[in-house]
Amino acid sequence: MMPNGQFPSGQGISASSLKRRSAVLEFLGNVWSNRKGKAGALIFIAMILIAVLGRIFSPYSPYDTSFGIYLPPSAAHLLGTNYVGEDVMSEFLYGTGVSLMVGFIVAIAAMAIGTLVGITAGYMGSVTDDVLMRLVDILLVIPGFPLLVILSAYLPPTIWSTILILSVLSWPFNSRIIRSQTLSLKRRSFVLASRLSGLSSFRIIIRDLIPNVLPIIFINSIFIVVGAIVAQAGLAFFGLGNINSINWGTMLYWFETEDAIIFKAWWWLLPPGFGIMALGIGANLLSNAVSETSSRIRRY
């Protein structure tokens, strides 16, 4: 049910942007008013706060190696220290920022590429559509992790290479959704466009697309954020990308490589895993909330 008249009309906002904004706000409002949605959103907000503010509040520099090695948690080191005597708490707070940055940049890039490809395929149709969609099919079939590994092995080992590779491989599902919506809107808008001269069918598609795909793209993007963080961690665990960057993945890589397992240094192992798990649970809560509050998602 659309709550009518959330905005008084005639405040200098054009009708189409008004519609778009209210659709986004209404959608976010619905998610927030759902119990699970609120819990999921709070998890994400908490993680983002840690990511942004973590560096400021971290007790030590994550590069400070002046402490004893493998110190268990204590008042001075809430999460103990690692194999070279770095403070794990500082490492975690700092690393959360990098991991989340990877996740969000990849999700935004995947949304941009997916939208571009989806609209192009749906709007152009025929051969373009065929080629793009077969490409999507193939990308979905090739096993993801080995593909990530081979691409990472050939590219320079930086965090930006990893972001680039993950972005290039994360868009297919988004593009499928956008494409099917574009197709159905195109059919309708041609009729409309012949009546409303001046407003091209392409613009109608863009305008009407957003409220229609919002729920599913939102959920998919959230899962891409988590998926990219896990994938980056997996690649780092394989020794790929910049293993000297501090993030959740490299924390686990050094744990494994330095055989910290012999020291049973659980305080070093647990934080990154729990960080990823928290985001995963948050994503699932949000996803449940969206499917409970949005009837539109049922179409897919």
């Binding site: 665990f237 192992l269 895993g273 985001l279 649970i281």
Partner: peptide
């Protein structure tokens, strides 16, 4: 199920390694 699914597989592997191999 959701919690398990959200875990990185190698992380869980390390935990189980500690549990069954060392603890």
């Amino acid at each position: 199920s959701i919690s398990l699914q959200s875990l990185p597989v190698f992380w869980l592997g390390l935990i189980l390694q500690i549990v069954f191999g060392l603890m």
